[in-house]
Design a protein around this nucleic acid. Sequence first.
DNA 1: ATTTTGAACAAAAAACTATTTTGGTCGAAA
DNA 2: TTTCGACCAAAATAGTTTTTTGTTCAAAAT
Lengths: 194, 194
Amino acid sequence: MAVSKKAVRDAIVDTARYIFARFGYRKTTMDAIARAARKGKSSVYYYFKNKEEIFLAVVNKEVGSVKEEIRNAIASTSDPKEKLTIYVLTRMRVLYRIAHFYSSFREEYLQEYDFIQRFREDLDRYETKIILDILRDGIKKKVFSISDPITAANSIVVALKGFEYYWGTEENITKLEKQTEDMLEMLYRGILKK
Amino acid sequence: MAVSKKAVRDAIVDTARYIFARFGYRKTTMDAIARAARKGKSSVYYYFKNKEEIFLAVVNKEVGSVKEEIRNAIASTSDPKEKLTIYVLTRMRVLYRIAHFYSSFREEYLQEYDFIQRFREDLDRYETKIILDILRDGIKKKVFSISDPITAANSIVVALKGFEYYWGTEENITKLEKQTEDMLEMLYRGILKK
DNA sequence: ATTTTGAACAAAAAACTATTTTGGTCGAAA
DNA sequence: TTTCGACCAAAATAGTTTTTTGTTCAAAAT
């Protein structure tokens, strides 16, 4: 056992990631994955039950990376306002980058696969929880004034979803970053006169 | 000329609306439209150049109705805050209703048709303008305090887009209404402590 | 003059068939 | 324990025929 089973599995996941990104789910073949991983096709089946399991592994790892990247970004400060800003901006950039990396999926009928739906819901819950934590911390530290943090967190998640539409069309991220900062400013100050 | 040419045209548009809603764009046939309008297939061509022109007429009328419904709704008050609330809630309800009426389009690959894209952009500009007008009026009336109303209007449009995602999945509108009101509350007050 | 329609036709979609590719299995070899 | 060639059924693709559909047009009806 020169290399561990897990190491080979991980290597396959890493190469599969590029194949999936370039060809989408449907047009990616097991043979292509195997060849890219310098393995026989049936060897791949020694590590994975089927195609869906490979894809799930890819997505799982991707989600893990996203969460870690965001976690690292918001760890840089303890100021709630700053933390929320960094969270929202990082989230926007990371998801924009991923949407462009997996660009081939745009022309695929994604809603067919219901495990995608489940991942979205999972990510939504994760987002809501992070935001909620930041909001609660901000309330405790007397930075935020929010009567119902859970509701507020949900609203922020919904509002951030609005950017999704532009990931496909908008080619340069600068505008989106500006737009994100603008929305945050509004969120902080509100628009009502005191 | 018992009935005007325009009247017949309008009647065809009205019946075509239901056919398109039930079958989507691609699966709607000229023959089906003609039969539903109690006309020979070639008679329809006396009123419309082709299939796309009929569909465009349907969409145009729909957009007109939406705009009118919203215009009527926000005419009920002159208070800026109330007006913005009514606008956002009405918009949510109207678009939710339309998304459900044209439900067959969900399984159609809509992005193929670029005239749909143009309608979205048109509606976006319309929305931005309405919101901007309300914001400016609110500033003048010392109800709102906004440094850059154009930017704020854009941000609100983006945030409202977030609801779009739920039109397909969410079956009862009550949750969405509640969610909309929550988001508005946050928009008004902001979350920062003064 | 305006409106309607049946007949006709090219283009597109659908149905069908033959062929190839692909996901997945298994037993043997390394 | 890991790799892989051989194999198979199912699915995708390519190729062909048949049917449907969008559009035109000249003639008939109003």
